[in-house]
Design a protein around this nucleic acid. Sequence first.
DNA 1: GTCTATATGTAGATAGAC
DNA 2: GTCTATCTACATATAGAC
Lengths: 190, 190
Amino acid sequence: MGTKGEGNRQRIVDAADSLFYRRGYNQTSFQDISDATGIPRGNFYYYFKTKDEILEAVVSSRITDLSTMLARCESEAEGARERLLLFTDMLEVNRDDVIKSGCPIGTLSSELAKDESTLQEKSRQAFILLRHWLKDQFSALGLENADDLSVDLLAKMQGVTVMACAFKDVDYIKRSHIEIKDWINSKTLN
Amino acid sequence: MGTKGEGNRQRIVDAADSLFYRRGYNQTSFQDISDATGIPRGNFYYYFKTKDEILEAVVSSRITDLSTMLARCESEAEGARERLLLFTDMLEVNRDDVIKSGCPIGTLSSELAKDESTLQEKSRQAFILLRHWLKDQFSALGLENADDLSVDLLAKMQGVTVMACAFKDVDYIKRSHIEIKDWINSKTLN
DNA sequence: GTCTATATGTAGATAGAC
DNA sequence: GTCTATCTACATATAGAC
């Protein structure tokens, strides 16, 4: 209920978001988040009961950010095809981060798949959001296999990020981005 | 030089290989490897100075295994196109592991990208081996952009594994495998 | 070569003063 | 609400007996 406390809570989530992305969830300690925020370790337990709860808040925050990004794609582009093309731009917009740390959603999903717990389900929610939005765009263009196309597009972008990150290759991202846009056009034009 | 020691060394590498794949490198402890092999923790330091050295040995072991797999592709298929198609079969051959833990090479590369150390370079060696072999196959078919096609194929397979693992979807692997083989044929036939 | 005991650091989590 | 001190567990790594 406190106003000051909610501000601190958000600062913890923001710092954890960045650290989970750059170092991984398991490799990020409370001390790391404390160093990044200036908030003492012990204080975290006033806002979150466990580290898992911080992860849940981070995933929720990422989903909110993604929703904002998708809304911007809708407002800045007229048709569904143009929105899909705009969506793929995030490959190049975030290319430096992609080269260094991969995709925030993809790498988190891969990391959490290795824990036997139910953590991966949480990270999957972000993929589901994208999958549904992309499917809606393909559906709006009258394509019957819209869900398959949606997952295919996500797989293309995930594959590019994994290889670009593995080989630290910026040019490869640019080339692949063009190929992906060509693929979208080939599926949605005519 | 001891013969018994080398046997134990290999048992450590084999157990670490499996654990690094299923739980991740950072999430695998010496105790885990000890439990899997029956070899006491302290004994590991007779064979490896650090945990990083175990990882190096695991990557070397994986590269050896991959080389064997590629040699089998060459012996079991006549032409380069058939060898490429046979290579992609590993998607379905290992589909249960892929669903559970992703790709051993891709997930290790993604995990090590998050450490600021030089560990990722080691894991990249496995990707380089595949990249060169695939390039040789495309080159043998007279294709000029053989290296690009090689990375494109690796990206396709990485993308499929990431999505299949995220959504735990076996059918998606089967469908994508067919699409990948169609893509290879479209590039190499005529 | 093999194993036990242990050193040293740090992880997540808790208790309780203020 | 905020912070310090601390608990317990477990990590990598080392020392040294056998």
